[in-house]
């Protein structure tokens, strides 16, 4: 698939942690509005890959262009990119010393330099979008895991990013809370947001993904549209992996 002008363009990306090669020769391009779901066994480099896109990890060699900016050592470029890329973490990483509203507004006020009233208005709008407008004045620890993760999604959305990255957003949640988070993500996908999700929620992947990516041992083993990916994957390893997680 060669499409013009991808919003994320990764070519020959390598990443080493000392002697360990976390990513080897990764190629991936993502169109504006495309939804990509990355899966694979633990330690396969999924998280490392999306953390590279947000510059939370630097890479050893290769090229990585996000929203037209080539990511390099230059600090200023990194911040320009980060403002366009929202990130949702497995452990939520909400700011415990701020209320929900504070968590949402601090980026807008301090980074985007918005006025506090504008920021609060936008924050309430996004809290509405993630279905927890009534929790605005609580502190993160007063919320359930599912609510916390939805606040984290709203916090990222408040920066009005062009791309949203999700790093196993439901892995730390109790089972009964997974769906409320996936619902919010599905609704977000419907708005046309470009999304890259590392997740093992295959139901969600089937519903939402335009492109499935399977990683193992730091490299991409398979890229396919979900219809093909789930019915007849080319790679034997990918088939084994799917068999294992789709049994139940």
């Amino acid at each position: 698939m060669t499409q013009p002008n991808p919003i994320i363009d990764i070519r020959g990306l390598n990443k080493h942690f000392g002697d360990f090669q976390a990513l080897s020769q990764v190629d991936l391009s993502v169109e504006t509005g495309e939804k990509v779901v990355i899966c694979g066994p633990s330690g396969s480099g999924k998280s490392t890959l999306i953390r590279c896109i947000n510059c939370l990890e630097d890479y050893s060699s290769g090229s990585l262009i996000v929203n037209g900016v080539k990511l390099s050592e230059d600090n200023r470029d990194i911040r320009v990119v980060r403002m366009e890329v929202g990130m949702v973490f497995q452990q939520f990483n909400l700011f415990p010393h701020l209320t929900v509203l504070g968590n949402l507004t601090i980026g807008m006020v301090r980074v985007r330099k918005m006025s506090r009233t504008d920021a609060e208005e936008r924050a309430r709008h996004y809290l509405e979008r993630v279905h927890i407008p009534e929790q605005a004045d609580k502190y993160p620890e007063q919320l359930s895991g599912g609510q916390q993760q939805r606040v984290a999604i709203a916090r990222a959305l408040c920066m009005e990013p062009k791309i949203m990255l999700f790093d196993e957003p439901t892995s730390a949640l109790d089972p009964e809370m997974i769906n409320e988070v996936l619902d919010v993500m599905t609704e977000l996908a419907a708005t046309g947001m470009t999304m890259i999700c590392v997740t093992h929620e295959m139901g969600f992947a089937r519903r939402v993904a335009d492109k499935m990516v399977f990683m193992e041992g730091g490299s991409i083993e398979e890229i396919a549209p979900p219809e093909v990916f789930f019915s007849k994957p080319e790679s034997a390893r990918c088939r084994m992996f799917l068999d294992r997680i789709l049994v139940h």
């Binding site: 510059c55 939370l56 980060r82 403002m83 973490f89 990483n93 601090i106 980074v111 916090r155 920066m159």
Partner: peptide, 15 residues
């Protein structure tokens, strides 16, 4: 994780 969250919303080190 707090550093990462702060950086992911575009904050500089000082911020």
């Amino acid at each position: 994780g707090q550093w990462e969250a702060a950086q992911s919303i575009g904050m500089s080190r000082a911020q």
